[in-house]
């Protein structure tokens, strides 16, 4: 029994320690801005790795999710003769929820796991130590550009996701199922608010970007530098960041849209 409580206490403490290390890493990466001469080039490279490389999966997923939403929404709405409301249904669910959340989940699977594996591998092959011994701060050189790349990429990806999905919904709803194109757009426009829906969706996206990128980088930076440790860290990145995204999504939705 005492062992049981002891192990709970021990686990709690190590969770706190882990959170502390993660915070220290983040602060280390944010406070030490990469030097101005090299920074932009490093950031562009990481934007390519993190953002551009996720573009295809985001666009394809967005297209299909928009099409499915239109199809499902239509079959329900047409029962009430309200198929003209397909536009706002699709746009609101995408801008408020699906855009930021699905992008974050896909991003965690595509870019987050890659970030963890890459940094874990750099740690295992002593590249991080080697940087330190060359008097180059790995937080500044390796972690910082990746963090900013993730933080910038994800909201952009979420916007692209939503836009493509709405086009997909238009494709199915208007071109295929015969909803009137004019009412599709105009009712959407009258129902969707720029501040409340688009900006709040983007705020969500920035929060998710912070969470997913932070978790991915920390898991890589803190992993046990063996192949087993890296594979464990990669899995943890996807699991932890997905759960964190869904949890925070609930909190943010409660704050933003319940009023």
């Amino acid at each position: 029994m005492i062992d049981f409580f002891q192990s709970i206490g021990h686990k709690t403490l190590s969770r706190f320690a882990s959170l502390g290390r993660a915070t220290r890493m983040l602060i280390g990466a944010l406070v030490n801005v990469p030097n101005l001469r090299k920074g932009p080039a490093l950031l562009v490279r990481q934007l390519y790795m993190v953002g551009h490389q996720s573009l295809l999966i985001i666009m394809v997923s967005g297209l299909f999710i928009g099409m499915v939403l239109a199809l499902q929404g239509y079959t329900v709405l047409v029962g009430y003769g309200a198929e003209d409301s397909l536009g706002p249904l699709v746009a609101l669910s995408l801008l408020r929820e699906l855009g930021p959340v699905v992008t974050a989940l896909l991003f965690a699977g595509r870019a987050g796991s890659a970030l963890t594996a890459e940094i874990g591998l750099m740690k295992a092959t002593e590249q991080l130590s080697s940087l330190e011994m060359m008097a180059i701060d790995p937080l500044r050189r390796v972690v910082s550009p990746r963090f900013w790349a993730g933080f910038i990429s994800m909201p952009l990806l979420a916007l692209i996701f939503s836009a493509v999905a709405i086009l997909g919904a238009h494709l199915v709803g208007v071109d295929w199922l015969g909803v009137d194109s004019g009412s599709f757009w105009s009712i959407m426009q009258s129902q969707v608010s720029f501040e409340k829906d688009i900006l709040n969706g983007m705020i969500k996206s920035f929060v998710f970007a912070l969470i997913v990128t932070w978790i991915a980088l920390y898991k890589g930076y803190d992993c046990i530098p063996t192949s087993e440790g890296i594979s464990k860290a990669t899995t943890e990145t996807v699991v932890h960041s997905s759960l964190a995204v869904l949890g925070f999504d609930f909190l943010l939705t409660a704050v933003m849209f319940s009023g």
Binding site: A91, L95, L156, L159, A163, I166, Q189, S190, F194
Partner: peptide, 15 residues
């Protein structure tokens, strides 16, 4: 990304 933002801001949320 910027284009998507513009589309969403202008075409989807005119109000």
């Amino acid at each position: 990304g910027v284009a998507a933002f513009a589309v969403l801001a202008l075409k989807v949320a005119n109000s």
